[in-house]
Design a protein around this nucleic acid. Structure first.
Lengths: 137, 137
DNA sequence: AGATAATAGTTACCTAGGTAACTATAATAG
DNA sequence: CTATTATAGTTACCTAGGTAACTATTATCT
């Protein structure tokens, strides 16, 4: 089994997707990492930065930066929690207003990337990836 | 089909592997991007920077940086080609000497990451990934 | 041959994400 | 209650990789 090739192709796929997603988000002044945060907030509701980190498996420093950019763009607010150390992140009205447009662009990008991969392969891949990740964590 | 989840897990796997590989290479003062270059040079022989870029699907600027670090560490030399624009990249004696140690560390890291993924799953994943990549390029 | 276009590589600057060191607050042990 | 420890977040700095703009060389077109 050629493990180098397995890791290499996975890495390339990942980069390719990120680039494509960034391209799709460009018209809205957003980047992939920001979209990940917006998506989670829209899906799961308000979360603290720590919870966002845990959910996205990202360290705290990059999350701070991503959120600070979203704050600057007016898509997110940082509200002190009951525990004064934590900051709860809330989508703004503006973000909720723009979200459907962003989502359409992202879905279109994903559709393009998955276009030639049969539905059965997609499901197989997802299953394999999930079980692999689970075993690693 | 949840495309978000498919891309998200793939992205996380990729980050996880890179982190693990960097950890394994740390004792040797090397990073994953450098290892990728060293591996290709050892496997395919001397290449120009452009050929390295094409093979690794990386843009020229990051390749320049990675190679400059390898030059500084004495693991690679840049030799002007017949075409005076291009630079051919050659592994040094020192790199050839150290290579087996690096390879052992990388193989051990890969072995660990693949440990709980059955051989059949590995092959399936590789097949799916390769066919997906091919359709995208 | 000479002007123009294409190519290899570099530099500057951007986002993504990692660690180490730090601050402020909360939780806990004595 | 106080001292210590743990936690949330930030800052500084590192590598990885992307685009845009640039230089030097080669290829091409008239």
């Amino acid at each position: 089994m050629n493990s180098h090739e397995l890791f290499h192709t996975l890495h390339q796929l990942s980069r390719h997707f990120t680039n494509h997603l960034n391209e799709a988000l460009k018209p809205f002044g957003l980047y992939s990492a920001q979209w990940a945060v917006l998506f989670v907030l829209k899906t799961k509701g308000t979360l603290s930065q720590k919870e966002l980190c845990d959910y996205l498996f990202v360290e705290a420093p990059p999350m701070t930066r991503t959120i600070q950019r979203l704050v600057k763009q007016g898509y997110v607010r940082q509200v002190p929690g009951k525990d004064k150390r934590e900051k709860r992140i809330i989508l703004t009205e503006e973000a909720l207003l723009q979200y459907p447009k962003w989502e359409r662009a992202v879905n279109e990008a994903n559709r393009y990337l998955l276009e030639h991969l049969p539905e059965t392969s997609q499901k197989e891949l997802l299953t394999l990836q999930k079980s692999w990740l689970q075993k690693l964590l």
